[in-house]
Design a protein around this nucleic acid. Sequence first.
DNA 1: ATGGATTATGGTACCGGTATCATATTGCCG
DNA 2: CGGCAATATGATACCGGTACCATAATCCAT
Lengths: 347, 347
Amino acid sequence: MSGDRRNSTRQTKRIGVRDVARLAAVAPITVSRALSFPDSVAPATRQRIMEAVSSLGYIPNRVAGSLSSNQTRLIGAIIPTFQSSVATEFTGGMATVLRSRGYQLLLGGSNFSVEEEESLILEFLSRRADGIYLTGTTHTERASRMLRESRVPVVEVASLDGEPIDMLVGFSNADASFAMMRHLAGCGYRKVAFFSLPTKDNERQRGRIAGYRRGVETFGLDPDPALMAEVHMDLASATRSLGELLERRPDAEALFCGGDLLAIGALFECQRRGLRVPEDFGVAGFDDIDLAGFMQPGLTTVHLPHQMLGARAAELLLDRLAGKPVAGSVVDMGFEIVVRGSTRKVR
Amino acid sequence: MSGDRRNSTRQTKRIGVRDVARLAAVAPITVSRALSFPDSVAPATRQRIMEAVSSLGYIPNRVAGSLSSNQTRLIGAIIPTFQSSVATEFTGGMATVLRSRGYQLLLGGSNFSVEEEESLILEFLSRRADGIYLTGTTHTERASRMLRESRVPVVEVASLDGEPIDMLVGFSNADASFAMMRHLAGCGYRKVAFFSLPTKDNERQRGRIAGYRRGVETFGLDPDPALMAEVHMDLASATRSLGELLERRPDAEALFCGGDLLAIGALFECQRRGLRVPEDFGVAGFDDIDLAGFMQPGLTTVHLPHQMLGARAAELLLDRLAGKPVAGSVVDMGFEIVVRGSTRKVR
DNA sequence: ATGGATTATGGTACCGGTATCATATTGCCG
DNA sequence: CGGCAATATGATACCGGTACCATAATCCAT
């Protein structure tokens, strides 16, 4: 009556530390140590344990380990969408760094909704993720509070000017956008339109708009609000919106987009309409996705180090977890205006 | 000496079920039930518990819950790369379904290496993921064995003709590729080149090559191996490889690519070289990524329901977990040849 | 009214590791 | 060669939920 098992949910009892310990003739804790901190166990013992491990096919149960050690080695990340190469490149950057340090990635998509984000955050906190990565600084009240109270390290990838919960990695969207406007103005374009992505709960897009407005004002460009539009992030919406813009303002001279995908859609639409780029019409984007450099003509855009942003965010998180208590760090990763064929040469 | 805490790793003791139970004047197990199966608790009790939960800001510890209940509600997914919109769309599809059913996604990238895949699998098994999603049917010996022995539900998204570990969702790469060859032959192209992605440990690409070869043979096309090349999955490699191809075989009439990105790179390169598509040179891709339909001319390609593939895979996994014991299911999601402007009109 | 089924709740042990502290062993130095 | 520090290993309890079975309360049909 001691060897019977009454596992209903469970299949035939799994191999555990105790089994390995018995076979290697050591205490369970020693097995645990041999696997987690090999150096803390004598070489001979370690080898005996390793042999037992492989001969039994022992797969440690990290769930139990996490409960006991109070660390999961899990990082929860929330991206707005899986459709954007920008978001997934961030994620790839993070995943690489995390894995190299023995962490795993718990990933969720918020669909650009702060409410969905909140529920994902709650989920991640429930799973006791060791750190959390968020896109942007806009969150629900409750989400921010829960994060702060949980004392979990958080990195946000966003504009520098937001109010970070904890750490923040990013660049100034407004400055980048303004820099692009300087370029466009320098090209001689006076009637510059702007397509932003949906701005709801998205302070990054709002920053880009602010930069555009500042540019319009600073360089004395056409301030007509009819030159602006909010466009969904897909090629079809972009081409459609360009059509509408050209109906409202057939005299528009250039278009700056708050995302490369929009700019690329616009570029295709220009080709279709026989609009010559950059002579008749200039186009500029934001993000510098792979494709931007391959378009014909190449897309002038704001270059951002996507993968590195993700990697840096992961490093911040892990450094913090490793005990380096850097409170409230803000890291500026900068940006770069990349001029290609879609805007006129500046003389 | 009973109320003192000696938590070193831990911060000031977290709220637990016991705290909530005390406040609601019930047993801990009742709190657990109220949260997991609300209907199994009397309404009045449930409400008292819910009030206690929110007044204490209780966040259940799923790590403990997982250990105890032996289910993590975690699905581990391995994609070859974060750079491919195909892979990330799969993932998005999965993530959506998983979340709607209360599961979370543990994501890793294998960099197209079965060895990295193996280590990721081990990691996921260690974390006791309830199910595992893999890309392809090519894995290391050890990985396959561990998966089988673990008795964890596994879905592979791959060619139908592979040998699945458990469940499989996909379509026949060879048939799809052959169907495209029929189209190309029908267009009158006789010297059709083929660019595949790296074939190492990738039976999907090999299936596509097989379909190409079968097409060449069946339709009596030029079988010169110089028409074939293996190309890395990025635009730069694609354009470079097209240049090399045209040096080897300046008389090539069309190019079929084992991935849209390659085809798009080729399309750009054709524009650059002034090659008229589809008159002088036909181009066809595989996957039908968003961009394909927007190119000028539009890219003829094999359409696949990426998101749905991911969603279907997730559903299979969850259905299995929900107790529907469908052994060794194989789901054919089909494909579709989408003819656009990059290949000649068939008369 | 009464027995048996049904529903609501609780006691207890246990999931499988690891933190913590204790003990045994070895090494080194004067 | 004794004594103390450093190193290697172990005993025990506990992490925070939930499975399992028991018990109490409620209900209904006869």
